[in-house]
Design a protein around this nucleic acid. Structure first.
Lengths: 344, 344
DNA sequence: TTGTACGCGTTATCAT
DNA sequence: ATGATAACGCGTACAA
């Protein structure tokens, strides 16, 4: 059960530990022959350096934390999957941590940094509103990914961000609905106190209506229920169920996430409403499953893969090459499928 | 940027480091008053012990690795979510690692153990066929979760397992289809060389047919395509598409995972086939989204939450209390929804 | 009850 | 090119 150490390897090879260390870490000043001999022994004995010792010595761990707020959404799953690959490729460890709704993600980050001496943090989702004071305590580079676009005036130099322009993309989608002749468009959105993408997408909705000469009506704004998990199937379902009971005329529903939309779809068909004949339905995110529903879901697709890869790239540039912070805005894509149609 | 250490705390408090250490680690032999004073200072200075140093000293890290084979399935997402919570609750760190199809999960585990000195491993999914020799090199407790039931004769004392009896549950579902009058039941299953749950579920299917006096017909056995990701929407879709082109009469399709079933559903409706009027469709797993599809999906539900919690419990019992290895088999539940009906 | 000093496995600095 | 040795921050045996 005794694990083999660098000393053992050194002894076996008849060299000093520093030579072994040099071999492991690809140092220049080492005789290629000795290096080969050492590496052979290492392989033979299946020696793997102890990470804790390395990290202790190195002062920081080759690790990146990914903090996810708003659990379980397939949109995030897809991002995490790509992030894990990217991080692994750089030979870093990914520390994944879901942040509960009652936890402050910055506090969690602060603790994690001290505990694990990580080199970088990726915030997935969550809210933009963090006191700068707290944020600046975070002495490692961090990046806000899909957290909504960074507002002007916010100090953009202490961190990076990657996102779509949620307002614009949301506008695109709602504008498409308007141009298709819809005038009574309901939106399933975030709570009133949301300050994140939920708010931005709602703004896009309002703006699109206005630009199309359609008044914004409060009774068509359907915030998620606070007692149910945010952005969940169940929430979309419950909100729609309740809305339909009110019999408010409406020809289209826009849910600010595909998962909400799928929940809404169920509620609609339970009420005997056909999509898109009776009601058009659209989501946001572009998760894969939307393509497989019947009818398939019209949505605003975020380029998940590219966004995740860019997130990793920016962070590693900052860590490795001391690059400056960047703010990268991706374009979404309006994907019109079967769940929406023109009204005559 | 200098991080504060235990020495600093000791100096500030005017005590020795060991006293601080005792305070942190809840040792008995310390004056409650000094302890309180120290803890106050620690909070004030926001001191968090360096994990690497602790792990180095402790010889092993308070960490559990979760190795997932068969990426991205919402079934696993749900399990991981619960596992993360359970692990966090024990104040352990979860090391999540997806294992590619071309990687050997035991090799990955072996390396991870040496690198991170973890205390336990949870294998999620993957295959049962591991050489015992390799497995026994793994000098930390490990548990196979939802990997299929451990066959008798396999040395059950070197590890634990948690699973449903895939054969039995699959039998349950297919038997229900048979009893509903179906005789031409296709199955979307794993490749022929699969040795995991895929194989077991296929066995359950065959057995159910036999017991109902229905011959097993090769042309109704539809293995997933190897060139597409396993257990994916796309795979279910592609397999069904191809099957339908052959125009082989069949009144029901059983997909060995819900995700496959959802892909199949799309293929069916594209061909103008109504579910369940023309074809009944059933899945396996009981992922949440199945409930929200239209028609909602008949499935064999695995008790994800309980299984994940039990997985964690068993592992921590072994780690903490030196308990013996256990093999726990859960019952699944046949959930009949709208996607299946009796044939007249 | 408390403090001193050593060692965990590694890397980096300094000699050689 | 290589080897001895001092850190890194913490826990603990042992001494007080």
């Amino acid at each position: 059960m005794e694990e083999i150490t660098i000393k053992d390897i050194a002894k076996i090879c008849g060299v000093g530990v520093s030579t072994v260390s040099r071999a492991i870490n690809n140092h220049a000043d080492i005789n290629p022959e000795t290096k080969k001999r050492i590496m052979d022994i290492i392989r033979e004995y299946n020696y793997v350096p102890n990470n804790s010792a390395r990290n202790l010595k190195r002062q920081d761990a080759k690790a990146i934390a990914v903090l996810v707020k708003g659990i379980d959404n397939s949109f995030f799953s897809a991002m995490i999957k790509v992030l894990e690959e990217e991080i692994k490729e750089q030979e870093y460890t990914m520390v994944l941590r879901h942040v509960n709704f009652d936890e402050d993600e910055v506090d969690v980050a602060l603790k994690l940094v001290k505990e694990k001496r990580l080199r970088g943090i990726i915030f997935l989702g969550g809210y933009l509103v963090h006191s700068e004071e707290k944020l600046s305590q975070l002495h490692v580079p961090f990046i806000l990914s899909t957290t909504g676009m960074v507002p002007k005036g916010y100090s953009r130099t202490i961190y990076s961000s990657v996102a779509v322009d949620d307002t614009k993309e949301s506008y695109k989608l709602v504008d498409y609905l308007c141009k298709s002749g819809h005038r009574d468009i309901a939106i399933i959105c975030a709570h009133k106190n949301d300050a994140s993408v939920g708010k931005l997408r709602l703004e896009g909705y309002k703006k699109a209506l206005k630009d199309n000469g359609i008044p914004v009506r409060e009774e068509l704004i359907l915030p998620m229920k606070t007692e149910i998990e945010d952005y969940s199937l169940e929430n979309g379902y419950a909100v729609t169920k309740e809305f339909l009971e009110k019999k408010i005329p409406c020809t289209a529903i826009f849910a600010i996430s595909d998962i909400l939309a799928i929940g809404a779809a169920r509620a609609l068909s339970e009420e005997g409403l056909k999509i898109p004949e009776d009601v058009s339905l659209a989501g946001f995110d572009g998760v894969e499953i939307g393509k497989y529903m019947s009818p398939s879901l019209t949505t605003l697709k975020q380029p998940v893969g590219s966004m995740a890869r860019e997130t990793a790239r920016i962070l590693f540039d900052i860590i490795g090459k001391d690059a400056r912070h960047q703010h990268c805005v991706f374009d979404g894509e309006l994907v019109v499928r079967e769940s929406t149609k023109e009204v005559c």
